[in-house]
Amino acid sequence: MAGVTAHSLGPIGDAVTTLLDAGRADGTIRPDVDARDVILLVGYLSRLDDTEWDTRARHLLDLVLDGLRRRD
């Protein structure tokens, strides 16, 4: 199913799917995340006001990346 989702997102979705698949294979990425999830979450960063970028962008990106990590 991830391949269908990635395909509809074009080459960026394909690239994100490849990265997610590699992370799942080595046990670092949780199994319930697909390319669309990641692209939507990261896309939120583009909605930050210029005045917020320096104070919020790094923190929000850290939250996104932490959320992708597999938890046992």
Results as ranks from 00 to 15, higher is better:
residue 21 D to L: 11
residue 50 D to P: 00
residue 21 D to H: 15
residue 20 L to E: 03
residue 43 G to R: 01
residue 63 L to D: 11
residue 3 G to Q: 13
residue 8 S to A: 15
residue 6 A to Q: 01
residue 57 A to N: 09
residue 11 P to D: 11
residue 6 A to C: 06
residue 7 H to M: 13
residue 3 G to S: 12
residue 16 V to S: 00
residue 50 D to N: 03
residue 23 G to P: 04
residue 59 H to C: 00
residue 5 T to N: 07
residue 52 E to K: 14
residue 10 G to H: 04
residue 37 D to I: 01
residue 63 L to G: 05
residue 62 D to H: 14
residue 8 S to H: 12
residue 69 R to K: 08
residue 32 D to C: 06
residue 34 D to R: 02
residue 17 T to H: 13
residue 39 I to K: 05
residue 72 D to L: 12
residue 16 V to A: 04
residue 40 L to C: 01
residue 40 L to Y: 01
residue 25 A to F: 12
residue 67 G to P: 12
residue 9 L to N: 12
residue 33 V to T: 12
residue 44 Y to R: 07
residue 45 L to E: 11
residue 25 A to Q: 11
residue 60 L to I: 03
residue 39 I to T: 03
residue 24 R to Y: 14
residue 63 L to W: 05
residue 1 M to G: 13
residue 52 E to T: 11
residue 1 M to A: 10
residue 59 H to R: 11
residue 60 L to A: 07
residue 48 L to R: 04
residue 60 L to S: 04
residue 23 G to L: 08
residue 41 L to M: 14
residue 57 A to P: 09
residue 21 D to R: 15
residue 42 V to M: 03
residue 60 L to C: 00
residue 67 G to M: 14
residue 23 G to H: 04
residue 61 L to I: 04
residue 20 L to F: 07
residue 3 G to W: 15
residue 16 V to I: 13
residue 57 A to I: 05
residue 10 G to T: 09
residue 52 E to I: 06
residue 8 S to N: 13
residue 53 W to C: 09
residue 40 L to M: 01
residue 70 R to Q: 15
residue 42 V to N: 00
residue 52 E to G: 01
residue 18 T to I: 10
residue 44 Y to L: 11
residue 59 H to M: 14
residue 68 L to D: 12
residue 38 V to C: 01
residue 45 L to C: 06
residue 45 L to I: 05
residue 58 R to F: 04
residue 30 R to A: 15
residue 24 R to S: 15
residue 44 Y to S: 05
residue 3 G to C: 13
residue 49 D to W: 09
residue 3 G to I: 12
residue 4 V to H: 14
residue 35 A to G: 01
residue 64 V to T: 03
residue 25 A to M: 10
residue 35 A to L: 00
residue 53 W to P: 00
residue 4 V to C: 09
residue 20 L to Y: 03
residue 32 D to M: 02
residue 56 R to H: 01
residue 66 D to N: 10
residue 17 T to E: 14
residue 36 R to Y: 07
residue 3 G to L: 06
residue 64 V to S: 00
residue 53 W to E: 12
residue 20 L to N: 00
residue 14 D to M: 11
residue 58 R to C: 09
residue 2 A to T: 14
residue 53 W to T: 10
residue 61 L to E: 04
residue 34 D to I: 08
residue 13 G to P: 07
residue 25 A to L: 14
